[in-house]
Amino acid sequence: MADKLEFRRAIRDALDEELARDERVVFFGEDVAKPGGVFAATPGLYDAHGEARVFDTPISELAITGAAFGAAVCGLRPVIEIMFADFLPLAMDGMVNQAAKYWYLSNEQAPAPIVVRSAYGAGGRFGAIHSQSPVAWFQNVPGLKIVAPSTPADAKALLKAAIRDDNPVLFLEHKRLYSLKGDAPTEEVTTIGEAKVVRAGGDLTIAAVATSVHHALAAAETLAAKGLEAEVVDLRSLRPLDVPAVVASVTKTNRLLVVEEGPLTGGWAGELVAQVSEHALGELDDVWRLATDDLPTPYSPPLEDDFLPGTEAIVASVRERLGVAAGA
């Protein structure tokens, strides 16, 4: 499998190629340059591109994000790393009040092209404040794009697309995916905001992102053995949401399950369900969400495993909801 691409390598290569392609691209954050990143996602970039363009910063999320914004509106295309997505509340002013509003408030004088890379997600026994999904915190912010790839190919293509995008992009890397290996991308750059059907099926649509896509695919195999064919839609982007792609799938399956690794209340799954319902209520025989309880992510392995909407939880939820024959 020597030709397979590891997810963390995909991130590194995307940065490397964009730094080489465009001198306006700079990359900074905590421990990202000389140490190569705490998730080993950015080794060698400092050596290849020099400390003027790839550098380590103080542990100062306000400064990192605010400076990225200021640099962006003066002509650079900064990529920053906020080490854990749980730290994003500290970066929120720069993202929400400054970068995301700039294009509109300035009457379209200039955009604020920043990319905020951040490792997110649970399952690593990191506890409540190193495991969260920040999507719902940011999905309500006009002007900000949110991307969460599920494969190395998408990680590379979408990070390159994010860097070339003129808008601020929150680029979420699920930390359980860093060691995943897969094919290299076949397209140079993928447009942000396009979902992808990763498994065809006629009985049920399961929409998800990142690790949940893999869980949905595994669950679909189990369900197929029981005679239920699930179509799995990898949303890839949470803003913009590719509602037409989900509607197209639902038009075929008439049922929609949205899997979200995050609290049920106020989550992005609710937004997707609302939009699909508004556009295609007549196509829906059933629609529901599988998310976490409205609690912090627990630390203890059995507690955390039970907490997350993994493969078994998806299978159980579908069987309970649709009455798929018991016995598997």
Binding site: G66, G70, V73, C74, L76, P78, G94
Partner: peptide
């Protein structure tokens, strides 16, 4: 906000 914006502008 002005402080961080100018800090970033200086970077550029």
């Amino acid at each position: 906000g002005s402080i961080s914006a100018a800090t970033g502008a200086a970077l550029a």
